[in-house]
């Protein structure tokens, strides 16, 4: 039983953290629905929308900029690289968690070390690899390179998850005449579904939010993803553009934030699996 006073104290203590975390997003919303005349009037209280809300900034964003294209590009890149990464990582995680082979420990340490390798260390040489593969300035440059940082992370997460599923189940399937892949597909995949959902969500979130590769490998406006497009191509000259910039930032954050609110528990489980379970 939680007493009322204790709950009130908890809310009071959480409030500063919640406000700190959410204020920038609330500010995106307020800025994006205000008329320019009010937005750039220093005499006005910035928290109020006195002149009434306007859709002008969103209309500008969707009709006069490449923003819809960027959203589409981000969706293509995130979905394709997530699909590829989840398949590769599931196979690798299964091998690491189950099969006894000589270099298993070495390989899992290697995967972990690559997981810790920051993308900012690799963007320059990768740009040359991408251009050697004739992929510069295409969405493929991102679809191909994103799995390099997504796969180690979700392999690590899935291996921890898979090792909690009893191996007897899989072995009985093998005894009953299943192939290794058959056992993986019919026995392990259904049991590992929560882990796989978490892995997919994380992979998608990482891919949707990636910035430095998108910034480096792609220079044509119409091929950009939304993270690089909004930051680089919407900021033009001295025109006051904050309304549509904030609208763009908000709309582009929505897909992952929505997924997050729908699958909150999966995200929390995945976030903590890395550090606590190993």
């Amino acid at each position: 039983m939680v007493s009322g006073r204790r709950a009130a104290l908890t809310y009071a203590l959480s409030a500063p953290f919640v406000v700190f975390a959410l204020f920038p997003f609330a500010w995106m919303l307020v800025t994006s629905i205000k008329k320019n005349s009010e937005l750039y009037d220093l005499a006005q209280n910035p928290f109020l929308v006195r002149a009434g809300p306007t859709w002008d900034h969103y209309r500008f964003l969707f009709q006069h900029t490449a923003f819809p294209l960027w959203l589409r590009n981000s969706a293509i890149v995130a979905i394709a690289s997530t699909a590829a990464s989840v398949v590769l990582a599931s196979l690798a995680a299964h091998a690491l968690a189950r099969l006894r082979f000589r270099y298993a420990e070495g390989v899992s340490t290697f995967v972990f070390i690559v997981y810790l390798m920051p993308t900012t260390l690799l963007f320059l040489p990768l740009a040359r690899v991408v251009s050697a593969l004739h992929l510069s300035n295409t969405l493929w440059s991102l679809i191909v390179t994103y799995p390099a940082f997504m796969v180690p992370f979700i392999t690590w997460m899935l291996a921890a998850y898979l090792s909690s599923i009893p191996r007897d189940l899989e072995e009985s399937a093998l005894v009953d005449g299943c192939t290794r892949l058959g056992a993986l597909w019919r026995v392990v995949v259904p049991l590992a579904r929560p882990g796989l959902i978490t892995a997919t969500l994380f992979a998608f979130t990482l891919a949707w939010s990636e910035f430095i590769y998108a910034l480096t490998f792609i220079s044509t406006t119409s091929v950009k993803t939304v993270t690089a497009g909004v930051v680089v191509d919407l900021i033009r000259g001295d025109v006051f553009y904050w309304g549509s910039l904030m609208g763009g930032a908000l709309v582009a954050s929505l897909p992952v934030v929505l997924l997050f609110s729908l699958f909150l528990d999966y995200y929390v489980a995945g976030l903590t699996a890395g550090a606590v379970k190993g």
Partner: peptide, 21 residues
């Protein structure tokens, strides 16, 4: 718990834009 996690889940380059403003 969900609310305080939002800055982690939103694309960093875009939320930093809000801070710039």
């Amino acid at each position: 718990r969900g609310a305080v996690l939002v800055p982690w889940v939103a694309p960093i380059s875009l939320s930093v834009l809000a801070w710039t403003w």
